[in-house]
């Protein structure tokens, strides 16, 4: 919650509800990205060696979490800059930023994904899921902040 914004039970409830919607959107996007990648993999293996070639293949890289966290970081950077430029009110910043985008993005899943990749011996993928995602997320947030500052100079 932004400093100076009076925190009312109604604001907390609205922020929590928006966070629930964000979590639902994350569930949907994660499943959609996973299904799209699985379909692409099965088309490839189908061309190469027929059905069942994917059996025993390593678990796929968690692209869903990456897409969610990078897109959510870009949008939060944008909302933050628009709030600094007084285009977005403090109330909407709390509901959209802390609520919707806070609930949409997730840190815990990214951490567990990394441990699972490292435990499977996939060091490069594990490093990408930890450090690569951090760099991509911060870059996306910076891009959002910059775009927002162009739209609404503080």
């Amino acid at each position: 919650m932004g400093a100076g914004l009076p925190v009312t039970p109604l604001l907390v409830a609205a922020t929590a509800l928006a966070g629930g919607v964000g979590a639902g959107a994350r569930f949907w996007v994660d499943g959609a990205v996973g299904d799209a990648l699985a379909a692409r993999r099965s088309r490839r293996t189908g061309r190469r060696a027929g059905a069942g070639a994917a059996a025993g293949a390593p678990s796929p890289y968690p692209w869903g979490t990456a897409v969610i966290n990078v897109s959510g970081s870009l949008l939060l950077g944008l909302v933050t800059a628009l709030a600094l430029g007084a285009v977005v009110s403090p109330t909407w910043r709390a509901v959209l930023g802390t609520g919707l985008l806070g609930g949409y993005t997730t840190f815990s899943t990214a951490s567990v994904d990394t441990v699972r990749l490292l435990a499977a011996g996939r060091r490069g993928a594990g490093a990408a899921s930890a450090l690569g995602l951090l760099v991509a997320g911060v870059a996306a947030a910076g891009l959002g902040l910059w775009l927002g500052s162009l739209l609404a100079p503080a």
């Binding site: 979590a23 994350r26 966290n69 993005t105 997730t106 870059a139 947030a141």
Partner: peptide, 23 residues
């Protein structure tokens, strides 16, 4: 897992705070 802990933790806030400090 997906609901409570996914909504409790957040990545966008970490990324935006880090980008703001860097900027």
């Amino acid at each position: 897992g997906t609901g409570v802990l996914g909504g409790f933790t957040t990545y966008s806030s970490l990324a935006t705070e880090t980008a703001t400090l860097g900027a």
